[in-house]
Write a protein that binds this DNA or RNA. Structure first.
Ligand SMILES: [Zn+2]
Ligand SMILES: [Zn+2]
Ligand SMILES: [Zn+2]
Ligand SMILES: [Zn+2]
Lengths: 132, 132
DNA sequence: TCGCACACGTTATAGCATAACGCAATTGAT
DNA sequence: ATCAATTGCGTTATGCTATAACGTGTGCGA
């Protein structure tokens, strides 16, 4: 799923996420875009839905928030499962891929004949700076 | 964290989860316990908080739901990270542990000096029966 | 007996997400 | 060109998930 030209709302939402230094909730995005005419949650959620589909934004399930993909240009899908480390103090997010983890999980799903559609890996804790 | 004797509310909530054939949301649990005197979400959430602490219940972040631990007796903590495969059709949940995955993720966190507190691994898709 | 910790009940509120309606712009046959 | 289908958009209303804040009662050790 590669990204076509973004619509106005999609571009606004993506821009907010890209400039943010951490994950944002949909309602936080909404607040940041009120000056640009956003009035309702659906304007944000509809844009996010497309951005997720295009793979340029990721959803962090464990904190109900969204981040711009840390690997612009590449297609995150092609790297297999995406994993995140989320600092609960400064909310910094590190995105990474690990093929060995992918393979282990794929081995498991193959063994169970489970058809995986979407896999979430999220590590919450403290980043190096915050743990000190 | 091993489980002391459960209080009345904790036992009721745990019982509902154990008898369920899939994950339940807090509000679904609430509805199932109205006949037992439950009237407010907090009664459920407070019980869940303890059950999660004791490790006898797991929270599925990606679907805002809760399941009884599939490995009663053992302490899930001692097996490292717990992973779940969730069927989006029949909502069956399979819980498993994979030490190799644990090690890979621990290697990554060690390398980044990230102090992991809680790791979520959830695979959503279709179980063998539903994929057929 | 006093103080504390803990479970509990209740009301209110905050935070996250989608349903349903209608309109406008775009596209792509016919 | 025209019509139909698709897509994006705006708005209102609603539903689902989770916690804050306050008060009560009970058990237990100092
Ligand atoms: Zn990415
Ligand atoms: Zn940090
Ligand atoms: Zn378990
Ligand atoms: Zn199934």
């Amino acid at each position: 799923m590669s990204a076509p030209a973004l619509t106005k709302n999609q571009a606004l939402v993506f821009d907010v996420l890209e400039k943010a230094d951490g994950p944002l909730s949909a309602y936080t995005i909404l607040d940041k875009l009120r000056d640009h005419g956003f009035r309702a949650p659906l304007q944000v959620y509809r844009a996010l839905e497309k951005l997720l589909e295009y793979g340029v934004v990721h959803r962090l399930e464990s904190i109900n928030s969204f981040v711009a993909c840390a690997h612009p240009g590449e297609n995150c899908h092609s790297h297999g499962i995406v994993a995140f480390a989320i600092c609960e103090s400064c909310s910094q997010v590190m995105e990474f891929h690990d093929h060995e983890v992918d393979h282990r999980l794929m081995d498991w799903t193959r063994g169970k004949k489970f058809k995986a559609e979407k896999t979430t890996i999220e590590i919450r804790g403290l980043c190096e700076a915050c743990a000190a």
